[in-house]
Design a protein around this nucleic acid. Structure first.
Length: 1013
RNA sequence: GCGCGGUUAGCUCAGUGGUAGAGCAUUACCUUGACACGGUAGGGGUCGGAGGUUCAAACCCUCCACCGCGCACCA
């Protein structure tokens, strides 16, 4: 007989089964299958990234959904892949290059550098994929995609060309978010606002009146065609402002407030609100720009303009306008045709136009120097600490610099459709709970229905974003990414998939934003633009599982791309939306609620956890602590809980093996440590089980415990199925946990020992004493005993085989191991994966026929429940009597209803009693600890005395508690409104409760009296 | 400023109008033929505050406080 170890050892099990699944093609989706489709595309992790807890949460959920769908009989495609992650990967390689070779990418040149990135990708790209496999993810690896695969790249370029031809992609000189570290433009979404401590500087400037020809002054410059183009044209390599030569100083000074004095050399106007009585009369005059300091007569003059944008309550009411370095100022500049003076370099240092004292300095260093210059000039009026929000580059974590540059932009397509397709909370067709556990609600019948977000509240965020979107800056000044399919020759421009014919064409040096490739993910991975079988079968996908942090970056854009490119007639889709449901996970935080981050070092390595506790434990722990859409505080304790749970499951199966080896005799008993040797396989392995699976349950032999556990199983199947259909993973795990541990193990397994260990001998010990007990308890015939044992085994097999299936989506490895080890797989038909729990049917809740066949009814539930209640009360008597848990004692039971021998034996066993003496008319001595229950009264006769004082205190306290409860219920029942309006069932419940409490009151009072007497 | 979450046991969190729940931690007892990664029994909560609706409120409504997160920002 193969011994199985006492504790579950995941390490030796997990790789074995993962290999098995892969070898048998269990994860491979077949587009030709007749089964209904279920599909998920993975949010592609960064190709060179490492698995973190966020991935664990995310991918465990996807795996649960996929595995559940397979068991539901769906043809499942979980499509995996990785993202080239433009900036992130390029930065990684640049860092390595610097560290290892002390070189920059420029030293290598574009071509060579890209070779290095590919080498890097090949070397590190597989890591995260293998980590996902360790976690148990059932992705179809035969379809793994990378956003820079040749065919994927073609999709990206095709999309670019199409959108260009539609006029949705255009090139323009605009204000963009510039990252001086990465030296590239960024989209608005890649900018994060952060509060920053700095200073608000007030400085004064002198007003001048023009004397020269008006035409030389910018304020008088005639309006030209388009402001954008105009502004772009006037972007200076030189500072075009007029000088003091043209004007005369006055005695008037204006005070200006700014947080960025280093940009003064780029100012080309000051603005006031035309409605501001303090300054309105100055509009049209000029001021002398204090920086850069120049010879007095060459000091630049800039106009005072009136603009409604200026808030005259803020600062001094005078705004310096720096059109080349501030988005709002740029717009003011455009309105007033101001020249642009760009005083910075791409790397965030100041250029020559900033003046000798600032040129070459970093922008923050320049700020300090500019302040000093203002002090020297005697114009700095005030300098006070100030906190404002500054846009940071998400990637490089430095303040972005608004910068005018030539970039490619996309006017978002299909915005209206994308907005309309997502169901908003409170909309007519949205009903909470409409999901039910009907699988159709998640896929089949939702053709015309809307896309649903879970939790729903994100729909509002999504809607708000779509309402306010600006054009998307899609070009990046990077090397790693999809090259923009545009070529230039002189003034000619060509956009197409192939390099244009002829000499002298130069391709645009920029690449596309990473998200410009990932927004095509749901269909580009399935073979778009061809109508592949995969695309036909699996698009639109069923579920998307991702974090809310990329709702704009990715989710919204995928929806738009779906409508734009899958909405074309040849795909003949009733609705081109890329997915039916979007589940937003929470964000994993550490115990203190901080985000996981590398710098804090608070992010545990999931692989270490897997090695320590097992992948199933990690999955279970994560799911158990991750409620719908709420952030998750990660605690290793949760994983420990998962491990403990796996161990419990393991041992429950060991128990089955022990009692089932040979029915009931001593040889069937399992040995402990000394039985197993190191040479023996430490797992069930694939060997045939050592016992026969008991297939048939004989309804006639079912005990109250059997019926109880079957009904509890039924409830668990319902709960878990419903919870999963509603994406409530923590609820599902909680239900499973409760069923398996608190119901099956704690009660059923313990009760079953009455059948296996003591049914043939136990009753005699307790029946000698009285006639009554003899008439109640007839000793069973030997054959009957064996039949009963077999039947109990059948119930156990039934429950375990269902339980393993319920657990499989959560705990794929241990359930597969036990499925084979217990021999349940032999019950399942052959399928594509051979014998595996992966394709075993998802348990169905019992229907009326089944309940009738097994004779299951509510009364069975109540009987067993009453029995367990009696046991709990009885165990309490030990405490009252100050008797140790392990000490064998005799209880006396005075039944109120007829009790079967089996039930009596269960009570004895669970009480850990030496004997349970059944006396129909027992009259106890005063002071005997007594438990009164609907099933009957239980007495613990004591030889010694109980601690009267302590017991008096306890009883008094209990009495008070009971009285309080009674008062509560009585006041309700005494309330005419309550009685009149409440449904009868509720009323009955309350009456029952009152009766219960009153019974307890009487008992407690009697006990107290007995103590005193 | 606008919007969204949250506030329930020592901790982390469930709980959609009718007896306040779980896990961890904690106390006592138990190594009893699956499991000490275990078992048994306990202790611990005026459900952030104030009003309102209701026969009945942790739950619905209003206001307030505090914590967190988005979005938008004025130099």
């Amino acid at each position: 007989m193969t011994e199985i170890p006492k504790a579950y050892e995941p390490q030796s099990v997990e790789d074995k089964w993962y290999d098995f699944w892969q070898k048998h093609g269990c994860f491979t989706a077949d587009p030709k299958s007749a089964k209904p489709a279920y599909s998920i595309v993975i949010p592609p992790p960064n190709v060179t990234g490492m698995l973190h807890m966020g991935h664990v949460l995310n991918n465990t959920i996807q795996d649960i959904l996929s595995r559940k769908a397979r068991m539901d009989g769906k043809e499942v495609l979980w499509l995996p892949g990785t993202d080239h992650a433009g900036i992130a990967t390029q930065v990684q390689v640049e860092k390595a290059l610097k560290k290892e070779e002390r070189k920059t990418k420029y030293d290598l040149g574009r071509e060579e550098f890209l070779k290095r990135v590919w080498v890097w990708k090949e070397k590190h790209g597989g890591i995260i994929i293998n980590q996902l496999k360790k976690l148990g993810c059932s992705c179809d690896w035969s379809r793994e995609r990378f956003t820079m695969d040749a065919d994927y790249s073609r999709c990206v370029q095709k999309v670019f060309v199409e959108l260009y031809k539609k006029g949705l992609i255009y090139r323009g000189k605009r204000m963009v978010n510039w990252c001086p570290v990465s030296q590239t433009a960024l989209s608005d979404e890649e900018v994060e606002m952060k509060p920053q401590k700095g200073f608000m500087y007030h400085f004064k400037v002198q007003v001048a009146e023009k004397v020269g020809q008006a035409s030389r002054l910018p304020s008088a410059e005639g309006a030209k065609e388009n402001s954008d183009a105009n502004a772009a044209r006037s972007l200076g390599r030189r500072d075009a402002c007029p000088t003091l030569v043209d004007a005369r100083l006055t005695d008037t000074w204006l005070t200006i407030a700014t947080t960025r004095p280093e940009t003064i050399p780029g100012d080309t106007a000051v603005a006031v609100n035309p409605k501001d009585p303090r300054y309105a009369h100055l509009i049209g005059k000029h001021i002398v720009r204090p920086l850069p300091i120049q010879l007095p007569r060459e000091q630049k003059l800039i106009p005072i303009i009136g603009d409604d944008h200026v808030d005259f309550e803020f600062g001094t009411g005078v705004l310096k306008v720096t059109p080349a370095h501030d988005k709002a100022d740029f717009e003011i500049g455009a309105r007033h045709k101001l020249p642009l003076v760009d005083i910075m370099n791409a790397n965030g240092t100041m250029n020559d136009l900033a003046g000798d004292s600032l040129a070459g300095l970093d922008r923050f260093e320049a700020r300090k120097i500019a302040v000093e210059r203002l002090k020297e000039l005697g114009v700095l009026v005030e300098e006070k600490p100030y906190e404002n929000n500054v846009g940071y580059s998400q990637r490089a974590d430095v303040p972005i610099e608004p910068r005018l540059s030539e970039q490619w932009f996309l006017k978002y397509p299909a915005v209206a459709q994308s907005k309309a397709c997502v169901e908003q909370e409170g909309s007519a067709d949205f009903q909470i709970g409409s999901m039910g556990n009907d699988e159709a609600s998640r896929f089949g019948n939702r053709r015309s229905a809307k896309m649903r977000f879970h939790p729903q509240r994100w729909a509002k965020v999504y809607d708000h974003w779509l309402t306010n979107i600006q054009d998307w800056c899609i070009s990046r000044q990077l090397w790693w990414g999809h090259r923009i399919p545009v070529w230039y020759r002189g003034n000619e421009i060509y956009c197409g998939l192939e390099t244009p014919q002829g000499e002298g064409w130069q391709q645009d040096p920029d690449v596309l934003d990473t998200w410009f490739s990932s927004w095509l993910w749901p269909f580009a991975t399935m073979g778009w633009p061809e109508q592949t079988p995969t695309l036909k079968k699996f698009y639109p996908t069923t579920d998307l599982v991702t974090g809310p942090d990329i709702i704009f970056f990715w989710v919204a854009r995928m929806i738009m791309a779906g409508y734009e490119f899958m909405g074309e007639p040849q795909f003949a889709l009733p609705d081109a939306m890329p997915f039916r449901n979007v589940y937003f996970t929470g964000i994993i935080r550490d115990k203190q609620g901080r985000k996981m981050s590398k710098t804090l070092g608070n992010s545990p390595d999931p692989l270490v956890l897997i090695a320590q506790y097992g992948a199933d434990a990690l999955r279970f722990g994560t799911m158990r602590s991750a409620p719908l859409g709420q952030d998750v505080l990660f605690d290793e304790k949760d994983v420990e809980l998962g491990r403990n749970f796996c161990n419990k499951l393991w041992n429950a199966c060991r128990f089955r093996q022990m009692v089932g080896g040979t029915t009931g005799n001593e040889e069937g008993r399992m040995k402990n440590e000394e039985g197993a040797t190191a040479a023996e396989p430490s797992t069930f392995n694939l060997q045939p089980p050592t016992f026969e699976v008991q297939g048939e349950i004989n309804p006639a032999l079912l005990t109250s415990d059997d019926k109880w556990i079957l009904l509890k199983l039924d409830a668990a199947i319902r709960e878990v199925s419903t919870a999963l259909a509603d994406y409530k993973f923590s609820e599902a795990t909680a239900a499973l946990y409760k069923f398996f541990w608190s119901e099956y193990c704690d009660w059923y397994v313990e009760a079953s020992k009455a059948v296996f260990f003591s049914s043939s001998r136990g009753n005699e010990a307790q029946t000698e004493k009285t006639e009554t007990s003899q008439s109640l308890l007839k000793s069973a015939a030997a054959g009957e005993v064996d039949a009963r044992k077999a039947n109990t085994l059948a119930v156990i097999d039934f429950v375990l085989s269902h339980t393993l299936r319920l657990f499989h989506p959560f705990l794929p490895f241990i359930t597969e191991e036990l499925w084979h080890g217990m021999g349940y797989s032999t019950d399942m038909p052959e399928n594509q994966g051979g014998k595996t729990i992966m394709f075993a049917p998802w348990p169905k809740a019992f229907d009326a026929d089944m309940k009738e066949a097994y004779g299951l009814g509510d009364s069975d539930l109540e009987l067993a429940q009453a029995k367990y209640h009696l046991v709990t009360e009885g165990r309490n008597l030990r405490r009252v009597g100050n008797i140790q848990a392990g000490k064998k004692v005799k209880f006396i039971f005075k039944p109120a209803v007829a009790v079967t021998p089996h039930d009596a034996e269960v009570i004895r066993l669970l009480l850990n009693a030496e004997a349970l003496e059944i006396v129909a008319d027992h009259a106890s001595k005063k002071g005997t600890p007594t438990a009164r229950t609907p099933l009957g009264d239980l007495f613990l006769p004591l030889e010694g005395l109980i601690d009267v004082a302590a017991e008096t205190v306890r009883l008094t306290k209990e009495l008070e508690k009971i009285q309080a409860e009674i008062a509560k219920v009585e006041s309700k029942l005494g309330n005419p409104g309550f009685v009149a309006k409440v449904p009868a069932s509720v009323l009955d419940e309350h009456r029952q409760r009152l009766a219960d409490w009153q019974g307890k009151l009487t008992h407690a009072q009697e006990s107290l009296d007995a103590l005193k007497g």
